[in-house]
Nucleic acid binder design. Structure first.
Lengths: 313, 313
DNA sequence: CCGATTTGATACCATATAGGTATCATAGCA
DNA sequence: TGCTATGATACCTATATGGTATCAAATCGG
């Protein structure tokens, strides 16, 4: 598979006519026909119905057309971004983060970073905690915000805070009658939805361990890919779901109750490479301290346990 | 630019060694060196520092590596999805939607659709209202959920509901003292944030027109790319923002007040091609009716004006 | 319904480009 | 300062891409 073939296919799909597509591509028509044939052979699937004029796309062809446009657009963006960074000698700071930090301090940290270092190209990559460690070691990210403690000697993890957990409960069920904190044991026998399904180990296992250590055996465990889906299922009364307190913002159509217990928490951890002397790492730490000192709304004491000094400085 | 070059570069970036990378690619080392050189020439930017052993990536190279992995992954997904659709003879229903419908009925509609038509491959594409019309005509989507009325004779638009608008106000400012509905005129002289910046015309213009028609001239208008950013700026006290009522769910750290006035609404419109006889269009309409009849929480009368019968049947 | 026209497929050739082999240049290390 | 590992260069071969000529079939006008 070749980007050229994607470009050719897109031209044909757009024009619905091989001859005209060949003209816009500045090649002759027969090579174009052949490239499309090669593409179809490789896919093992016909993309174009040639028995009618104008030619039409098959179902698979429509899908492939749509996806091709997106891939080609993505490639263009990539070239432009790389040129910009290479020519302007900008620096790039890649930040990996778990989705839930979007509801905590990440947006305001990024805002602060852009203000303090406008020359910096900040790249944000969503990835779960266990993906962050290899990503750091391979240099794909410089900083990770995760939720699992790691034991890799090449990566330093600093717990920024311990966030308390809440249970999301469908409105109208008996557990939702009350707003008071709930013991973990009270979840025994309930249908529980956990996320993310993969990769493992992940936050789902953290939650399942918590339940297990409190002898709260769920009636049923459903695994879903992401928190949005999980909360959607809660709203659809498919079960309960345990989420970090800050993620309550995602949906207001379910009921939330704090979980009791000192271990009913999930840490937010700052990860970076051992021996990374980049100034930007220090800037990030400084801005995090600053941000925490400002007492943002998502950092209320009811939902967070803090260890000061934050970064051991 | 060629996918082969991306694969080659990824191998080198991973191995940090041309010779070993060439082995994993099952080619000799010199051609690999040359392909990387060609890639760098085309970009006009060096990607690899060869003066050290092992070789290292430049800043631009790190960015390009990360992006290449994503693009290659995307391509794999695309091939798999196309093969699946082509071989299983599955049908594809492409749905274009404006982001705000994610906070309304779209998730539950999609859930219902998957239940009622499990053989269907549902593709969801976020796009603003004006992009939906050409996308429908070109067959890139079959159904669009938008917020702007269109006048194209080839596309039928049905207003599902008129959603009332709310103002997002930074907590702690004087306007946020009260929770009662607000007249549009009261927004005169305020800093206003609108989205999306492009493409135009879009929802931003709908909002600006509303302000203009009420003689509510803002002190300052800031345009941002998406609603998340807009509400983030509101939270950072950068100004006010007018959003459809259902999007209140996005953030709970800002204050919301309903906008008064019969024209302070934004429609949710179902678009599809004239003469599209697909059964799935009818199924979608039927499921929408069903969903609206269930009185979902986002469809409260306080925030929505309904025209029954919904789909003129 | 049939010939004219449009348009895609096939056959075959020319050429560009990728890959291989031999060899050279240089970084890193003892 | 040699020795080894490793990347670059030069040059050749093989493959694949594009072009030209021509055939075949879908569509359309009368």
């Amino acid at each position: 598979m070749d980007l050229r073939q994607l470009r050719y296919f897109v031209a044909v799909a757009r024009e619905r006519n091989f001859t005209r597509a060949a003209e816009t591509l500045h090649i002759a028509q027969p090579p174009l026909s052949r490239q499309i044939q090669l593409l179809e052979d490789e896919l093992g699937v016909p993309l174009i119905i040639r028995k009618t004029r104008p030619v039409r796309l098959t179902e698979a062809g429509r899908l492939f057309y749509e996806q091709s446009l997106q891939v080609l657009g993505r490639v263009e963006q990539m070239l432009a971004a790389t040129r910009r960074v290479g020519l302007n000698q900008n620096s790039v700071l890649s930040i990996g983060f778990v989705a839930s930090t979007l509801y905590g301090g990440l947006p305001s940290l990024v805002r602060k970073l852009r203000q303090h270092a406008p020359e910096l190209d900040i790249q944000l990559l969503e990835m779960v905690s266990v993906q962050q460690i290899p990503a750091l070691k391979e240099g794909r990210i410089d900083i990770g915000f995760g939720r699992l403690r790691n034991s890799d000697p090449n990566v330093i993890g600093t717990v920024l805070r311990e966030e308390r957990l809440v249970v999301a409960i469908p409105k109208g069920t008996s557990l939702a009658q009350d707003a008071s904190p709930l013991g973990v044991a009270a979840l025994a026998g309930q249908k529980v939805i956990v996320y993310p399904k993969e990769p493992r180990p992940g936050y789902a296992d953290h939650v399942l361990n918590l339940l297990h250590s409190h002898d709260a055996r769920p009636a049923e465990v459903q695994e879903v890919r992401e928190i949005q889906t999980a909360l959607g299922l809660v709203a659809a009364e498919a079960g309960l779901c345990i989420i970090p307190a800050s993620a309550r913002q995602i949906r207001s159509d379910v009921h939330y109750r704090l979980l009791d217990g000192k271990d009913a928490t999930s840490p937010v951890i700052l990860n970076h490479r051992v021996g990374d002397n980049s100034n930007y790492i220090d800037l990030v730490k400084q801005l995090i301290e600053e941000m925490y000192a400002e007492d943002p709304p998502w950092l209320d004491l009811e939902h967070n346990l803090l260890h000061r000094p934050l970064l051991g400085r």
